[in-house]
Design a protein around this nucleic acid. Structure first.
Lengths: 186, 186
DNA sequence: ACCGTTGGAGAACGTGCGTTCTCCGACTGG
DNA sequence: CCAGTCGGAGAACGCACGTTCTCCAACGGT
């Protein structure tokens, strides 16, 4: 197993375990077992758990950005592209093991003690809102709508987490649709 | 210091520290220092940290329910009572040291490992949504609106947390106002 | 074949923390 | 004044975990 493979396996294992149980609840031994990478090698690649946390969050950030962009760009009209964000959420919430947004969860757990984690979370959420803003602009709606839709989306993420239901995505979509309809079109 | 006083001081200290730093980041020694209650006494009152966590969350639940009810009931019209929820949020977000909703944060940190914490969080959020539903009903709007407003509120709570701004409350209020206006009145 | 490097398995170390224990002073009822 | 109880301060214990170290097998170049 070369360096790159080991790194990927570590990030895979860390990301999965952190998401399932929370970051602080996962020990380095658990990551070693799940990844099959020895502790020695792990610490050669990531000098500390903190580095691994940040790497896992950064990769998840990229993955989600790409997936969301692909999902929304597939819709035919500008309005549908905006609403596709909420269809994406519904698919996500329906996946087994959905436990909320990893960034919101990480911020809740470590935002107060790790500035690096806090920064990654802020960047991810900013990118999400920016993407929404671009879709809103394409649809010819006022920029203020983007922030409102972002609130609906983030609210749906947390609500779906503790209710264990995908329904918040539908509620958010309905609200988004109404806001879209009543926002002054270009 | 009698039993009741010690209990209150413990809950005060625990609630404050948990909120500031996250639950797992706070040791029992820190609670002892902040409360002035000895460890021995603490463990007589709360047999474990888990008990103290639950007590702190339960008291915060009651406090917030009461404060929100008082805040919303002060508004003169049914519509204003609904929007008062978002004024309440703006006041809350503007307080120094605002770090998000303690229930959302606790769920992110412990929801996966502590069913008791998860239940308290669910109950709190359910009560919040129920309150919103009552206000929506008074205003003669359809029940589905309550879930949508709850999403806006929860989304604003998390967004205000990592942006460190109270602006999400204003965005949420604007969206709520529009949804309220376009929802079919009774 | 020999030697130096690499990496694996897991023990070991240090620390922090939840919880309990020890010791001792302070108060109470008679 | 005394016996008994209570509570405080903080040491001690046990465990978990992040990190490092030890030991050894495998491998590659000459």
């Amino acid at each position: 197993m070369d360096h790159t493979t080991a790194e990927i396996r570590l990030i895979d294992a860390a990301d999965t375990l952190f998401y399932e149980r929370g970051i602080q609840a996962v020990g380095m031994d658990a990551i070693r077992s799940a990844s099959g990478v020895s502790l020695k090698r792990t610490y050669q690649i990531f000098p500390s758990k903190e580095h691994l946390i940040e790497a896992a969050l950064r990769r998840r950030d990229e993955t989600i950005r790409d997936a969301l962009a692909a999902y929304t760009s597939a819709a035919p009209t500008p309005e549908e592209r905006v609403l596709a964000v909420f269809d994406y959420l519904r698919d996500w919430f329906g996946q087994p093991g959905y436990r909320g947004c990893a960034f919101i969860n990480s911020f809740a757990e470590l935002g107060a003690t790790s500035p690096a984690v806090a920064d990654i979370v802020r960047a991810h959420k900013q990118a999400f809102t920016d993407h929404l803003a671009a879709l809103v602009a394409e649809a010819g709606r006022p920029p203020a709508l983007a922030a409102q839709l972002a609130l609906l989306a983030n609210g749906a993420m947390v609500t779906a987490a503790f209710t264990g239901s995908a329904e918040p995505a539908l509620d958010a979509r309905a609200a988004a649709s109404r806001l879209l309809d009543t926002a002054s079109a270009a």
